[in-house]
Design a protein around this nucleic acid. Structure first.
Lengths: 253, 253
DNA sequence: TTTGACCCTGACGTAACGTGAGGGTCTACT
DNA sequence: AGTAGACCCTCACGTTACGTCAGGGTCAAA
């Protein structure tokens, strides 16, 4: 009726040592021991192991799994829904990776190789995996960064192209304004800044004026961005930084 | 043009310490250092980091990633296809988990709770994840176990139901034979054994006579199987073991 | 009763970082 | 020019989740 360590290891795919370890740290202690001291796992224990492996697969530390499973809601329909949410999110991220790979394969076939920047941009979004899920499980997280993550994960290739195009459009008008000699703290530049902020809010996350000001600073500080903007037009990084800042000031912050 | 550790950490989502570590073990050493000794990452380095994170996500040890990336085929179309294969396989497994979760949710809503055995059966297939991929990458693996893995991963719920039904059918006839007093090494029992072996080959993997004999032994040794068979009819586990063995002997092995 | 497959409990090893400690570097502001 | 604060460096020890023996019982089959 009950299984030995080796048998559990066999059906579950984990090692015997792992089961010993889980016993040691109190994550999964078999309900019974044979007279000789052999660990005997019951069906209940297997059920628990299943849940343990589930959360482990999602990257939770064992210690946290202990607390998650000690939650009385474990096993309820609600709990199942949460598991489902975590899993589908994960699948979504991996599918985004698949999509980007396919995109790259396509591009390579046509001899057009993406700039590393392009790829990192797309790639970066799902790379910082891992703990977004935990935060969600714990606090139901709603910070801007995670909001961005979620939205970005749901975008199609078409969306990305549109995002890129809209971004390029505003950039172009920034260059025009700058070349026309319009001041960075003038109304035209500030309106463009506001439009840029609106785009971010629309596509990624609620972009406050503080955040927008921070972004502007980054355009100057981060050599990557700096290089990119200066490649479009020398001085553009600083110009837009000043415009963003002026726009933020105009809106009282 | 080139990024500092902190900047790379920012865009890629890994920690600064991780980058230091990758440098230490020679997995990713930045091409340049500033006069002050600061690590400077080029576009090429970022590209490599991207690949590193890709394989890391799939669970490869860092040491192996070194050798994978040192392979001159890295970055070619062929390499991309291999990456794509690994990824989609992974996605498939996770989707199977999703499906089984949905199945459980559905069942719970209808008040029918699955037996833990049922769940483990379905669950077990994708649990021993991890190294199937590595084996594939290294040896293009074709052993029975992995063949089984692959096939099992592709089955729909309908398939599983049919598998279950066919299995139950043979079981029923085994019970009949046993109850009719037919010897386990008689032609009827051996034919049933052969049919059982055929089913395994059809649904899971090329089941040789040795393997089949091993399975039979397991039916007796593994308390889970033993309990299950004895629950259907006392002595069934031993009866089928003997029949499998006789059938194997009949076929010259 | 002996052999081989399993099980036990330590206990040390390892991979992939986390986390300071102690000390330069760089840019910004005063 | 000086200094605060944000980064960077190199040790170096700590941590998580096990892997891997060592030394020694257990148990079913031959």
């Amino acid at each position: 009726m009950s299984l030995s360590v080796g048998q559990v290891a066999g059906v579950s795919g984990v090692s015997v040592r792992t089961l010993h370890h889980y016993d040691e740290i109190g994550l999964l202690s078999p309900g019974e021991r044979s007279p000789a001291g052999y660990r005997l796992y019951s069906e209940k224990d297997l059920e628990r192991l299943e849940r343990v492996l589930f959360y482990k697969e999602l990257g939770f530390p064992l210690e946290d799994i202990v607390t998650i499973l000690s939650d009385p809601t474990a096993g309820t329909a609600d709990h199942l829904r949460r598991q489902h949410k975590l899993l589908t999110r994960r699948v979504g991220r991996l599918q985004a990776m698949v999509a980007s790979l396919e995109y790259e394969m396509e591009a390579q076939q046509m001899g057009i190789s993406l700039t590393p920047e392009e790829r990192i941009e797309i790639f970066g979004d799902f790379l910082d995996k891992g703990y977004a899920e935990e935060a969600e499980e714990r606090w139901g997280g709603t910070e801007p960064w995670k909001e961005s993550q979620r939205k970005a994960a749901s975008y199609s290739k078409a969306d990305w192209l549109q995002i890129k195009q809209e971004g390029a459009e505003v950039e172009r008008r920034f260059v025009e304004a700058m070349n026309a000699g319009l001041p960075a703290d003038g109304p035209e530049a500030m309106d463009l800044a506001e439009e840029h902020r609106g785009q971010i809010t629309k596509w990624f996350y609620e972009c406050s004026y503080e955040i927008h000001r921070g972004l502007a600073q980054m355009y100057v500080d981060d050599p990557r961005f700096k290089a990119r903007y200066d490649g479009i037009a020398p001085g553009l990084a600083e110009y837009s930084r000043d415009a963003f800042a002026a726009n933020a000031a105009r809106h009282g912050k």
